[in-house]
Computed example of a mutant assay.
Amino acid sequence: MDFDLHWLQWLLLGIPIAFAFGWLASRFDLKQLKRDQRDTPKPYFKGLNLLLNEQQDKAIDAFIEAVQQDPQSSDLHFALGNLFRRRGEFERAVRVHEHLLNRADLPAAERQRAQNALAQDFMKAGLFDRAEAAYRALEGTPFDTEARLALLGLYERSRDWKAAADTAAKLERSGTGSFATRIAHHWCEVALDADERGQHAEADDALRRAREVAPHAARPLVLMGQRLARAGRHGEALEAWNELRRRAPAAFLLVATDYAKSAVASGETTAALSALKALHERQPSIDLLHAMAVLDPSPDAVQQRLAAQMRTQPSLAAALDVLDSPPAAWPGETLGALRQAVAKAAKPLQRYRCAACGFEAQHYFWQCPGCLSWDSYPPVRIEEL
């Protein structure tokens, strides 16, 4: 019993003590909050309000005033620099971020952030050599991946394909993602550049690299076959394109006619025609019809294949081929398929388009359903504009 009373006394004594500590902690937090608000320049909050209201010009003026009142605040400088960049005032953005980098008291994390912002300024301004140097300075920092991705875009834009392939390979090794197909494109571009300079051995090596990094990619096989065909090695070109036909039949359509010409040149007409017919049964295409016409140009065979194409997959391209032949050669059902193809192609052009926002509709509207503008629809359809 004595023990319970003793415990109760301590409990009653502890409640007011705990309350006092809580009250003191809340007062401390309130004082700290008031001090922070007092220390933060009022123009900063004014600038934020203007920015939220999309008044960028006035927001910039407010942030400049805030920076003048508190020149040591790096967050204010970043806000001002980003605003300048968004406004296209790249020179002023560069000055703000270079000023940050020149501060000896800037912490390492803030310095890296300023370096990244400066690199973005240079990139947006089109100063690619300075942007490259700025992004390279970020290697090994928390901005490393972001910098490498930016460098990859920079190298692709400036057509520095070897540097792009090297950067993409580093990104893949770092676990950022799969860049195999992209790297294959880079080496294909290297091959094209080498062929233009007459450096055919370098082009061969580049295509080999492209195939090694992305065996599934279609473009190396397309280029390989084209290079072999130009060199008169049509049998080898057919081998490359046959592999392409098996791996990527959709991409094979890009070289179907070249494939047929190489087949004629190498005496493989029958085998090539059989392969194209089999592919056409699975994937009807006007490109395959044109290729088969190279292998079997007899008028009757061409008309039969074209009529079958119009029945199964009417298109404007097939309709043009029909119109190139005399009407007497058209089978009876071809005229109906021809009308179907034209109607299908014309349907998207029979719409009305709002001049204010581009909203399209089959019916005419006096008020646009998209932007609610009045009288914004020209009273003519798209194909008549």
Rank of each mutant, 00 (worst) to 15 (best):
F21W: 15
A25T: 03
R27E: 05
F28Q: 06
L33Q: 08
P41D: 07
K42D: 05
G47Q: 07
N53W: 02
A62W: 00
A66D: 03
S74K: 11
L76T: 09
N82Y: 03
L83Q: 15
L83G: 15
R85P: 02
R87P: 06
F90V: 10
V94M: 12
V94Y: 01
E98M: 05
D105I: 08
A109P: 00
R111C: 06
A117G: 02
Q120G: 01
D129I: 11
A133Q: 08
Y135G: 09
D144T: 04
E146S: 15
A147I: 06
L152P: 02
R159D: 04
A169P: 00
T176R: 11
S178R: 14
F179T: 02
A191T: 07
A191M: 14
L192Q: 10
E196S: 04
A203Y: 00
A206R: 00
A214L: 10
H216L: 08
R219Q: 15
L223R: 00
Q226I: 04
Q226C: 07
A240N: 00
W241V: 09
W241M: 10
W241L: 04
L244D: 02
A250Y: 01
L254E: 15
H290E: 06
L295P: 15
A301H: 12
Q303E: 04
A307L: 03
A318W: 07
L320G: 08
L323C: 09
A337S: 14
A345M: 03
R351N: 11
C354H: 09
C357E: 12
Q362P: 10
C371G: 08
C371E: 11
